[in-house]
Design a protein around this nucleic acid. Sequence first.
RNA 1: GCGCCCGUAGCUCAGUUGGAUAGAGCGUCUGCCUUCUAAGCAGAGGGUCGGGAGUUCGAAUCUCCCCGGGCGCGCCA
Length: 666
Amino acid sequence: MYQVLTNRLREALAGHIHEKYGVELAIVLERPPKIEMGEAASPVCFELAKRLKRAPRQIAQEIANGLGKIEGIARVEVAGGGYLNAFFDRRGFWEALRQAEAKGPAGMPALRTEKIIVEHTSINPNKAAHIGHVRNSVLGDTMVRILRHTGNRVQIQNYIDNTGVQVADVVIGFLQMEKVTPVWLKNRAMEPKFDYYCWDLYAKATNFFAEDKARAEKLRGATLRAIEEGQGEDAEVAQVVADAIVTCHLRTMARLEIHYDLLARESEILHLHFWDAAFEMLKKSGAIQLATTGKMAGCWIMPWKEEVKEGKKVEEKNEKAEDDENMQDKIIVRSNGTVTYVGKDIAYQLWKFGLLGKDFHYRKWPNAPEGHTVWATTSDKDDPGAPHFGEPAATVYNVIDARQAYLQKVVAMGLQALGHGKAAEQSIHLSYEIVALTPRCAAEMGYELSPEEAKKPYVEVSGRKGFGVKADDLLDKLEEATLAEVQQRHAEMRADEQKRTAHAIAVGALRFFLLKFTRSSIIAFDFKDALSFEGETGPYCQYAVVRIRGIRRKGAEVGATNVEVTAENVGQFLAGVEGNGLWQLLAAAGSLDYAVDAAIATQEPAFVAKYAFQLAQEFNNFYHKHHILTEADEQKRAFLLRLTELVEAQLVRALSLMGIEAPEKM
RNA sequence: GCGCCCGUAGCUCAGUUGGAUAGAGCGUCUGCCUUCUAAGCAGAGGGUCGGGAGUUCGAAUCUCCCCGGGCGCGCCA
């Protein structure tokens, strides 16, 4: 609602200024520091003063007088040195918000026809998921929810690198180190915690390779080739491992309410010759070149081009470095003819935009979490019921950590070089920083810190070394802690209800914890912070909802909910200085669209987390000032009840955008 | 060496395209539960926004330089 009004105000101001002064200006709007100063303010007159060479306050006065009535805005005043402060029509805001709420999701904008792909999770299928992977999945999943909320058609993809080095390492671990048979492995893979087993084995394999580099290279090369070709025992074992681990990951993510539409597997990129098609295109267009001299001789490389900014070419500054090799050039095909990860990713990215001229075959993933259908790519025959995954996307979000920024740039450059500038532009690297551990947390995990590490603010996790906080362990710990708390508070609750509640709180705590930081912030993980349920946390927000529901339940019991509030009374309760407190809560409730727009514009889900927390905070503040059910004035009581219902609806929605459920009691 | 990111209260972080007196949580201290759940609320204390210069009516935000930290730049992914 807030965004609707500010957009209206923006248009009105722009139009008026253009008409009166003949100046085209982008209207900047900000939120005044205090509610007494209105709900939206524009410093546009300062800019205008410069152009018109007149005093800003004078111009502001002129505009305030000349600007006609804007629907939903009661008045526009001049403030400070020349601010234009807009005051919303409080009663109108109330009514509009209630109407929108009554309409429900049907009142959402019409579904857009373009397709958006969000790729997230994409964990190497050779070990259990850790906390860093969860940040990826939670960010991606939340982005999906926000995009869908605003009427976008979104498809969720999870890329499975089932033919890569990491899987190969575990295969070697099983076959060369543990010397197990494929039959044994198939049985073990069905048992619980197979991902934990591989977690340890992967660490062991890393050590094994470190002992003898030459042996490692030979084994890896042979295993990798076998897996890529899909032949023999190595390939068979690799598929058993990768499939079983993917199923583990799906189960872990399902605990966090994260699901996928399609598992895009690298094996199909190879077997269905996606790469061959992309390779031809890249060669033909000259996007990649065969290096004939230097240390990259025999490789197909993509030359690094300086960016073209606003039409003007930045000077090619690598004239001198040209004679030998450019450090930035990226090898796409190795001299032995095998393709690098980036090459495969270019092919995959081309497919996402429908530019490859090829499509996968699709089948249902056999071990999807209960109640969900997940599709996977296959080289075999199509399931006729499969959705049309090959439909070109207009925009693609790739949720990948910040360390891979360079590679993502190379991929986009590949699209650009093939003449797909639009696709390159709509190929968005949703970058985020890593989750590390505080030194204290690392020590808790049994990791021996060097004196230097102990002084640093964080220690990086390493899947290779088997060092990190596993997602399932963390969830178990959270659920244990929340369950103990719920049992203590609600002994009367049925056991399964207690468990469900504890689960919801655990998920709320974890998801909120990962979302409250902006993407560029490194999270130094600590159990103490993650297990905290007070202050700026998910449970704090959930608790506000629970309080409202408590009031509603009790209100219904005593029959306080059936009174209709007259429009006049609504206006009166919200009016003036006395109404400021209530109005502030109402305005906060009506500002979800503002947070959502900001989240999409900046691809920063943290805006929604911030919003939910602030609304919960406003509510708690209100809760302590007003005792609703004992309010003597029947009209006022009914009004306060309606107000809390509005808050509840918005807060529940904000939480659901983050994949957080608000329990009935907690 | 080149490129990207970061530096804001004791700690962890917000601060939207430059805007009004720089905010929140945690921690510390002081209060508030016979009243809709205290996973809560109120209050106090806490700042050269890393440093310097510049652009601007206006800079935590933009530009440049410097300091400090992180990451990337591999025939790994």
